[in-house]
Simulated assay, not measured.
Amino acid sequence: MSAVIEPGIASYSEYLEQELRSDHAGETGAVYIYKGIIAIATLFKNQELICFAKEHGATEAEHLRLIEAVFEEKYRSRLLGPWRIAGWLTGAIPALFGRKAVYATIDAVETFVEQHYQGQINHLKIHRGYEQLLDLLVRCQADEINHKNEARSKASPSLPLALRAWCAMVGSGSAVAVLLARRI
């Protein structure tokens, strides 16, 4: 039925296949969020954002590589093109408005991702047998929490209404993307 993971485990359950499909799509989108930030920050010569995005983008690229190592290509989302575009725009649009908008956006994205991974971690703790996958998800989640905390520490404590609305849209968009990626 599904992708091979650990030695001795033939396949993932349908649930895990869908979740890993969404993780792969999400990490693909995350790589492109930082590419979008870098593109705009480079135009504006914003070295702080370029460094932030390069560092975080490298972590997301590593997450993508790790997930690709345990999740066969034939099971991945067929919507990777749109995920790349959506990710790039999710990074580029706030970068047009400056650092505070970027940091608030990353806080919103990573808050969603932290919760998304936590659901999978909880599932794996109950349904034992995927210890390497559990370790991978815990590792990725810890990195995402660090990204969230760093971004939150750099964002303004009170956000303007338009930025709060953008961040709510980013969170909702992430939830819709997960639903789609699980299926397609």
Score class of each variant (00 low, 15 high):
15 Y>S: 04
69 A>D: 13
14 E>D: 15
36 G>I: 02
94 P>C: 07
2 S>T: 12
97 F>G: 04
5 I>V: 15
172 S>M: 14
127 H>W: 06
165 A>M: 11
94 P>Q: 08
85 I>W: 09
46 N>F: 00
30 A>K: 02
127 H>G: 02
135 D>K: 15
73 E>N: 07
164 R>E: 14
98 G>M: 06
97 F>C: 08
125 K>D: 04
103 Y>K: 07
78 R>G: 09
70 V>I: 15
144 E>K: 08
29 G>C: 08
89 L>K: 11
137 L>P: 04
57 G>C: 03
91 G>H: 04
59 T>Y: 02
127 H>F: 14
177 A>F: 05
14 E>R: 13
57 G>N: 02
94 P>A: 09
25 A>Y: 06
166 W>C: 04
104 A>R: 04
148 K>P: 01
179 L>M: 10
49 L>C: 04
93 I>S: 01
117 Y>H: 13
153 S>K: 12
95 A>Q: 00
174 S>R: 03
23 D>G: 09
74 K>A: 11
77 S>M: 01
107 D>T: 15
179 L>Y: 09
170 V>E: 05
47 Q>M: 05
6 E>A: 06
26 G>P: 07
54 K>E: 12
141 Q>K: 11
170 V>R: 05
155 A>S: 15
147 H>Y: 09
64 L>Q: 11
166 W>D: 05
141 Q>L: 02
184 I>Y: 13
50 I>R: 02
91 G>P: 06
120 Q>H: 11
88 W>P: 00
54 K>F: 05
24 H>M: 06
96 L>I: 10
31 V>R: 08
137 L>K: 07
87 G>E: 01
89 L>G: 08
122 N>H: 13
171 G>H: 10
5 I>L: 12
124 L>H: 06
160 P>F: 03
71 F>N: 01
2 S>Y: 09
28 T>D: 04
134 L>G: 04
61 A>R: 12
64 L>V: 01
70 V>H: 09
